[in-house]
Amino acid sequence: MIVFELFLDCVLLSFVAFGGATALLPELHRVVVSHHHWLDDTTFTQLYAIAQAAPGPNVLVVTLIGWKVAGLSGALAATLGMCLPMSVLIYLLVDRWERFSGRRWQQAISLGVAPLAVGLVFSGATLIAQAADFRLGAWGVALVTTVLSLRYQALHPLWLIAAGGLLGLSSWL
């Protein structure tokens, strides 16, 4: 029944996933690691790293977590649970969007949710650092990445990921 529970957890999360799957990292960790003890800290951060290094939408980290928790059916259940509810809702609502777009309450939600999403992404970053038990070298890499990524917007993140991987391979971190 772990697959069913995983599916339901993801359905619930999809309703608050403002800012996409990236904003969900802290909650994924809370549910999967702290609450259910399905994964440990190290596995969680390693799955996050794999998702970073693979092509595709950010939601894939959910696929990986599902797979690690309950195999192939877990991967499918988690991905579907995350994508299906909003897909159905948007299918039903899209033709009516014109009618509520631009309304005061719609703008208020868009404005109000933005600062929360920033907080979620920031929390996700601190949580990865904590769960991966960063030492000085890893903090250095994270800091340099932050600066480079902000400074050179055109720089493809894949280069940074490759550089980080190489540094890690040489066991500097």
Binding site: Q52, A138, A142, T146, S149, L160, I161, G165, L167, G168
Partner: peptide, 22 residues
């Protein structure tokens, strides 16, 4: 080691993203 390095970069990318969004 490889995954540690990538996680560190991923963490930095998240900080940068939060900064940009903020």
């Amino acid at each position: 080691g490889l995954l540690r390095g990538i996680a560190a970069v991923g963490c930095g990318l998240l900080f940068a993203m939060a900064w940009r969004m903020g």
